[in-house]
Amino acid sequence: MARMVEPKALMQGKRKRRKALTMWRMSRYGMSNFTRNMWLTVAATAVMTITLLIIFITLVARQVLVDTVDTIKSRVDMSVYVKTDTPGEQASLIRERLEKLPGVNSVRYIAPGEARDDFAKDNSDDMQTLDALNEAVNKFPGTFRVNIADINDPSQLDNFVKTDALYKKYADPDRKPSFSGQRRTAIQNIGKVIEFAQNAGLVASVVFIAISSLVIFNTIRMAIFNRREEIEMMKLIGADKSFIRGPFVVEAVIYGLIAAIIATGVGVGGLYAMHDKLADYQIAIDGTIHLVTVYIWLVLPAMMVAGALIGVVSSLLATRKYLKI
């Protein structure tokens, strides 16, 4: 017996098939627009590639800046000095106490003998200094090199040197800790520069991304402006707004996807190519290259999504103007 089909279900099925057919046609038109408008395709894809590359470079530059700043921060440490004759066990105790302070990343103790050896190494070419060093009694203090999380806030350390009884007993009266006096100003200045660089980097990223998006939007807007008569004609022969808009959106998405692939390739290639030069300037680029390489299958889709999204938004906004009744 033939299966009974309700007319409503039949209609719904027909409507679904028609929708799928319309979607397919919009995609086909978008793809054929892409291949047939060669000059427009090349121009729009080129602009989009440059724009996505700017976004890529901006994000990478920010990551490199963060890494470089972290490296600089890790190299800036606070020095706390104890007398030359401080016993090793007492120095170890003081180090343990320092390590327990909140905000302290690490503490390294340089004993007076070690300091003297380092000085001798640094001046190995200067015989006069070496002779003097051999004859004189070791006056180098014991030094605690303290690395703290926030170099702009040494308050915990400051409090420690003022209140810790053990430290005060062995504190070098001739050498104040580095976070006081002139050296403190120097460290604070480094901290301020780092903070400014981070904020400026963030603002620059936002500005660059905003400008880049506007450039793409204007390119697509101009491309659609060139074809406003086509849109007008489509409207007059009864095409739906979505049918008119669809091919433009598909076309812009293709621009975005291709541009994203090129921009990512050029960007990653550029990073590798510039690695040695940037490293010469003490710019911490290894971390970013590692990050981009390991997560390339995340970076590339992210760039493609960004490109496609900018394409969709731009084409929707640009066609809206011409789709009024």
């Binding site: 409207k235 007059l236 022969i237 009864g238 095409a239 739906d240 707004k241």
Partner: peptide, 9 residues
Amino acid sequence: PLLRRKIGV
């Protein structure tokens, strides 16, 4: 759009 599909221009 439906109206325009009924009119040829």
